[in-house]
Every structure is written in C-alpha cells, then in structure tokens.
C-alpha cells in the first residue's frame, strides 16, 4: 500500500507574525519557513506504517513555490521515499490543494492519504475533508491513533468531550491531530541521503487543475492589542470585580 502525505510550507511557529503594511496579507519576505507541524505528524505516521510493514512506499506531496522542495526534502530526510511537487506561485486555497491531491491520487493510487488536520498559517481545516469528498473515499479526521488492518483502518478521533473510534474501508483519507505521535528528527545522515531521492514536478495545468482562488481576501489586520491590566488593592475588591465585572463567579 502506498501512502500519500501532504506537507505544507508555512511560517515557522516561532516567528512573530507581522501584517504587511498594505494589509493584503502577512509578511513572508525574510521570514523563516518550516513544515506545518501537523504535517510532520502525518509524515511520521506514514513512516511508522512503512517500518511496521503496513505501507510499501511513502510519497510526500507539496504544492507551492520552488522553495516547497525544501519542505519535501525534510519529509524525505525523515524517511519518505519520494516527492511530488506541484509548482505554482499564486495563492492556494484548500479547494485547489484538494483538487491537486485528488489528481495525484488518481495517478498514484495510494491506499491512504494522510494530511494535517489544519495548517498553522490559515487554520482552514478543510483540505482533508475536501479531498475525501472529491475522491469519494471515507475520512477519519483529527486522528489520535491509527490502526491499519487488511482492507480497513481504525481511527481513534479526537472529538469534543472524548475520543471516537471509526472503522474505514480503504482507500481512505486521514487528518492528524497533535497527539497522534511525536515526529522524529531528520538526522544528518538522512538529510544527506534525501538528496538522492527523486522529486517529480508538475504544473497545475499538467494535472488539469485550475487553482485560481475562489475566495477573495478583503483585508488582513492585526488582532486588537490586549489592554493593560489593573492592580486590585484587596481580596474583597478582587472578588467584587470577578463577580460584577467579569461575571465569572
């Protein structure tokens, strides 16, 4: 069984996000970029499946500008076997990525697609669900634990108020939650070896996908700054404020 994992290049989680002066988006020039942390979890899970003999090949997919190759290389250095890069410079919305993933899945015929539940840049939480719908496959979102069996997969899902077990027929789409696993480091030997692993490149047109955005961003603004707190003089005053102003007791 092949496993297709999607890896998105996002602004590193350590970076303090700044809004562009013209309010059209956030500043990405000279900003450190990394693999979306949820996607790292997806890569790790796929590699573990391969190590456990449940997957035969792990393919890392990314869509975006040339630099996305670095993100794919990181996945390869972690242990993925080869990469697929859809090269495109414009804005990519979840639907476009889902269509690209479907096109690649049609060619590669994976038994599983694993993607992060969301990317830490736009927090859309849509791509996995959309690609499942486009392919007509079962989906197990927010995975906390995954067990692959013959022809099916059991996914323990993180849902409000607890965990839910679903059994899906393969092929299926799974999105990862934070507690699924702890991704490994890409070691120096593997970084060196990753250079020799192949990355196929396609343009969206080659795959017959129109990636033009369907949604328009009107304006991006910083969240309002937090107002300074005040110091209360007595416990009585604190209790009074908690009761009457904050309304929490």
């Amino acid at each position: 069984m092949k496993v297709l994992v999607a890896v998105k290049r996002v602004i590193d989680y350590n970076v303090k996000i700044r809004v562009k002066a013209d309010k059209t988006g956030v500043e990405t020039a000279n900003v450190k970029m990394s693999m979306n942390p949820f996607d790292e979890i997806a890569v790790e899970e796929a590699i573990r499946m391969k190590e456990a003999g449940k997957a035969t090949e792990v393919i890392a997919f990314s869509a975006g500008p040339t630099q996305c190759q670095e993100t794919i290389r990181t996945a390869l250095a972690m242990g993925a076997d080869r990469g697929v890069h859809v090269v495109t410079d414009g804005e990519l919305q979840p639907l476009a990525v889902a269509k690209l993933l479907k096109a690649v899945a049609d060619k590669e015929q994976p038994g599983l697609i694993i993607v992060g539940k969301q990317a830490i840049d736009d927090d859309s939480n849509q791509t996995g669900q959309m690609v499942a719908a486009l392919l007509g496959w079962s989906q197990g979102t927010f995975a906390n634990k995954i067990d692959v069996a013959d022809g099916s997969v059991t996914v323990k899902r993180e849902v409000d108020g607890g965990l839910e077990n679903v059994k899906l027929k393969l092929p299926a789409v799974i999105t990862t939650d934070l507690r699924l696993n702890e991704p490994r480091y890409a070691s120096l030997p593997n970084i060196m070896k990753a250079k020799k692993k192949p990355i196929d490149q396609h343009k969206p047109e080659d795959l017959g996908v129109d990636v033009a955005p369907r949604l328009k961003t009107l304006k991006v603004e910083e969240p309002a700054g937090r107002k300074a707190g005040i110091k209360v003089k007595t416990v009585a005053e604190l209790v009074e404020k908690l009761r009457n102003e904050a309304g929490v007791i």
Partner: peptide, 14 residues
C-alpha cells in the same frame, strides 16, 4: 546550502 539549513532546523528542535 539547503542541507545546512535543514540540519540547523533539526538541531534547533533537538
């Protein structure tokens, strides 16, 4: 190179 950057990234996490 990109390899150096990748190694730096991993080390930083480590």
């Amino acid at each position: 190179t990109a390899d150096h950057d990748a190694f730096r990234d991993q080390l930083r996490r480590f």
